[in-house]
């Protein structure tokens, strides 16, 4: 009983996050904020859905854990690479952007790489 409650909690938590992520994908103004919405939500959403399935079906628990670990490992790396490539090729930020910390960060990054 407790196992089912926990499993369904994780499952619906993940589903809610996936919904919020797709909603953000439609609503946000530029590439960076959209990426932020979609990747954060898919990482956590897919992660907790898979964990929920693992809790509901204890036979699959080990498999689900390994799937979740790979989601945690690969999704942020891929999205960070995409984001960095977008920034370096000059995809514009939205007009309403208040602060652009990446500018200073990438300037330092390039200095270090030039050394």
């Amino acid at each position: 009983m407790l196992r089912e409650i926990l499993g369904y909690f994780f499952l619906y938590f993940g589903a809610a996050f996936l919904f919020l992520g797709s909603y953000g994908l439609v609503r946000f103004p530029d590439l960076y904020t959209r990426m932020q919405a979609s990747t954060k939500s898919t990482t956590l959403g897919a992660f907790s859905s898979v964990i929920g399935v693992g809790i509901l079906h204890p036979d699959w628990f080990i498999k689900c854990i390994s799937v979740a670990i790979f989601i945690l490992l690969t999704a942020p790396i891929g999205s960070s690479a995409l984001m960095r490539a977008a920034y370096k090729t000059g995809v514009p930020l939205d007009e309403r952007t208040v602060v652009d910390e990446a500018k200073d960060f990438f300037a330092e990054d390039e200095k270090e790489e030039a050394k």
Binding site: F70, T74, A81, D109, E113
Partner: peptide, 18 residues
Amino acid sequence: KVPPNFVVRVGSRIVFPF
């Protein structure tokens, strides 16, 4: 033009054997 950053290099090393 733009070399891949630290995260991608390390991450691909971890994922590649799997």
